[in-house]
Design a protein around this nucleic acid. Structure first.
Length: 216
DNA sequence: AACCAGGAGACAT
DNA sequence: ATGTCTCATGGT
């Protein structure tokens, strides 16, 4: 089966996902850091705390004492680590001309630059590149690897860059694919939440019968 | 009550 | 290059 088939099947079943759930590109980047290995519902609570304390901006976060920031981030887990990461990221973002320069970078350079920031790994950087900067990269996560593996498309041992290249080359890397990459990653998450986690056999799953572990 | 969630970095091998 | 440990809350 092809990745195009998987995408069409998921889209037909779940419909548009309207990702990323955030108001501004900056909020996308904040969410990308806070959701590292953490349920999104917990991230929402942390973001609500920031908003309630008028701290949902790079300047406010950069100016907040780290222990205070950590308290607001508590619901999202790893709050000490994330307070450090979020604050250093914001200070980096606030450097003169930084944001303007980022916008001018080619997609690969933008990705490489974001990766150079401590606390921003591959998935987080790609979340930002795709959902905050609207550039054509595909985000790989644990769900993607598990789903593709169950579908027999990969062995499961492939590294992050290998999987990213697999998807990007299957659809192409032109700017036209931004909307598709946006939707596809969100659909994989939606599928994982509705089927592969709660119901291992994927009863009613749009990918049933194509997924060896789903054929009960 | 163990297990996992839209990972990343430090460190050892 | 690749594996292991740590960071931590909240829902099932």
């Amino acid at each position: 089966m092809r990745l195009q088939w998987v995408y069409e099947r998921l889209y037909g079943h779940f419909g548009p996902q309207h990702w990323w759930p955030a108001e501004t590109p900056f909020e996308v980047m904040v969410g990308a850091i806070l959701t590292q290995n953490t349920a999104w519902t917990n991230v929402e609570k942390a973001i609500a705390n920031l908003r309630a304390n008028h701290t949902l901006s790079a300047r406010a976060i950069a100016a907040t004492p780290q222990p205070q920031l950590a308290e607001w981030l508590r619901p999202s887990g790893y709050f000490n680590v994330k307070a450090e990461r979020l604050q250093s990221f914001c200070r980096w973002l606030l450097e003169p001309g930084r944001r303007q320069r980022l916008e001018q970078l080619a997609t690969d350079e933008l990705r490489h630059t974001l990766l150079s920031v401590k606390g921003v790994g591959r998935e987080t950087a790609d979340d930002m590149v795709l959902y905050a900067f609207a550039r054509p990269v595909f985000v790989i996560d644990a769900y993607t690897r598990r789903l593709f593996s169950r579908l027999g498309l990969i062995t499961g041992e492939e590294g992050y860059e290998t999987l990213r290249a697999l998807v990007e080359e299957a659809f192409g890397r032109s700017a036209e694919q931004v909307a598709l990459f946006n939707e596809f990653h969100a659909l994989i998450v939606a599928h994982a939440k509705d089927y592969c986690r709660k119901r291992p056999l994927c009863r009613g799953c749009p990918l049933a019968r194509r997924c060896p572990s789903c054929e009960g």
